[in-house]
Design a protein around this nucleic acid. Structure first.
Lengths: 193, 193, 193, 193
DNA sequence: AGGTAAACGAGACGGTACGTCGCGTCTTTCA
DNA sequence: TGAAAGACGCGACGTACCGTCTCGTTTACCT
């Protein structure tokens, strides 16, 4: 079971409500530390000191440093809608990941404990959500007869999103918006009827 | 330059040589811990105790737990030769990564500090070495006129190896030997003349 | 200024107060180790383990093993009041130093870093405090005309307390309560009018 | 039993002889470290590095850092002969201890393990040898009828040498050559017939 | 208006692991 | 065969964070 907490600011109203000021100071401090020192240096002690906040105040909302880091970076990848064209989706994902926060998220993902709940949840948010949207597009296209029937669609999607991920994580080659069209073209040319 | 230590057992012969017994006891202990407890629980203290060795003896050869872990797992990915057929290369990579050690390496890679020397060195060993071999194959085929001239070969390779990597790291889908042919077929069908 | 920590349990009440239980467990463990193993074997690791306490808890109150040892032994030498008779003072000092703790303090003093704050503070507590009380007695007696005017009183005191100290540290001869009268007689016979 | 070794430079001539160069480099390095860093920082590792010498070469001649330190400082207190006058003896001791090396010896004594062989040997060399010489003088004087018969001579000597020692170790007052006459006068005035 | 309940800052707690220093011993090769 | 070099097992060092726990204080809501 996940220990993840809701981080909601108003559970039921009884007693003193959580301080919005502190909440945001914590998230800001976490982002600053990620910016300046990297994900390995994101510690609860450090965030508490920087935010001028007690540690329990942090633990009241997040279970550990990774969850806090994830929350601090959340946002840029929210609201990926499924466009009707594959290329639009891929371009959208690349653009979102190519922001500063997007890159930090990828790094945080890479440094998260790979067996943990968080890793999976985060991976889902960062990569798999887009992949799932892509799967729906391709499935529709196959149903419409635009794509060969016996193609392993999940594998195609892993090639597309794997290409994005490998460049994001290993950074041996730059990842640019223009790659969206190229990678989709390459993938489609092999599977189009 | 890297601060990484060589861990070589006989640098030039001066003074007492490093003990082969200790060296191997350390690596064995590290592998055992990785097996039983996972990469998060790989600590220098733990390895020292298990190997019956002093901590300084470990630090004399490796700078930290990740480097030690990497060294402990090294081997299965060595010696990837460049076959003439792309599918053979990809199958080779998948087979090697699909061993227990291969998966442990991927996990270790994922938990390494993403900006560090180690991450890059390891990424290079795990993924990029295969990718480079593939690049040579495809370049030769293009020179032989078997592939369209204006194809972005690095991108093709990132699609192939990205597909492997994404399945290895995120584990949303299994990675099997049979995927080698499929992924190469998909990639080639789009770029073959 | 000294870097020494105060080890006071209630500085001003902010945050969780120091645990009296832990504090006393630490001091007791330190005393036990000094008793059983001697000052050389007084280590922070050992005290922490024996007291069932984390090392940082010890370092929060004392800067190193010597300071802890000093604190553990403090007490028997406190409260030396200045009697009106020199012999009473000297006997008091000898009696206090001749306890088990008193001897341990002398040993600890001898093993402290001789240039450090601690050495001086401890020396002051162990020896010089008594010497100072004696100086007041002798000064009063001189003012009363009982002692020759031109006597080097500090030197007289160093002879008296030096005799105590040399026996305590070098232990070539025993130090007994009866020596108080003898040493004072010897000193006074040379300076009385 | 003491592990102290002879430190002789020419045992019997068999195989390669001990290097006089190394021997002196070690002692010089030890003295330099005592000068610059103090007795607590006198380590075998440090001396070996500074002297450009292997550690075993040091251990071949001295059992540990304290013995080495003692050897490095030895000399100034050697050759205390027993003069016929007490004041000459005391002045001699003070002069010898008031050199730089003399003070270092006192500090080394103070930081030595108080139960060890070394402490006793060193104490003997630094303080007790002089005290013993004094005991002979006073005994002779008593035999000659110059001193009261029932005086506790060892105590008198501890007062004299204790005064020297307390000033040397605690350094609350300076110790000067002129104190020799004063301290002897004080002591003698109480015991002379 | 008063009581009460929760969140607040501060910071100490028992732990685990870190990476380093120094010990005194050992095992090499070189001279 | 002694010296240099340096690795060895060991034990302790002092520090960083962990996640939890007490404090006294503050800020709401709910009588």
């Amino acid at each position: 079971m996940s220990k993840a907490k809701s981080a909601s600011l108003t559970p039921k109203t009884l007693g003193r409500p959580k301080s919005r000021r502190s909440h945001e100071a914590i998230l800001t401090a976490a982002r600053d530390i990620l910016d300046e020192l990297g994900s390995t240096r994101l510690t609860i002690d450090g965030v508490a000191k920087r935010a001028g906040v007690g540690k329990p105040t942090i633990y009241r909302s997040w279970a550990n440093a990774q969850e806090l880091g994830m929350a601090a970076l959340a946002g840029p990848l929210e609201g990926i809608r499924a466009p009707t064209q594959m290329v639009d989706l891929v371009r959208d994902v690349i653009v979102r990941l190519n922001t500063k926060r997007g890159r930090q998220m990828a790094l945080l993902l890479a440094s998260a404990e790979p067996d943990g709940e968080l890793f999976k949840a985060f991976a889902n948010q960062v990569i798999l959500k887009g992949r799932q949207a892509g799967l729906e597009i391709l499935t529709r296209q196959r149903d419409d007869g635009l794509i060969h029937k016996d193609v392993d669609l999940p594998l195609v999607l892993d090639m597309i999103f794997g290409a994005i991920m490998i460049r994001l994580l290993l950074r041996h080659e730059p990842l640019s918006e223009g790659d969206a069209a190229k990678v989709v073209d390459l993938a489609m040319s092999g599977i189009k009827k």
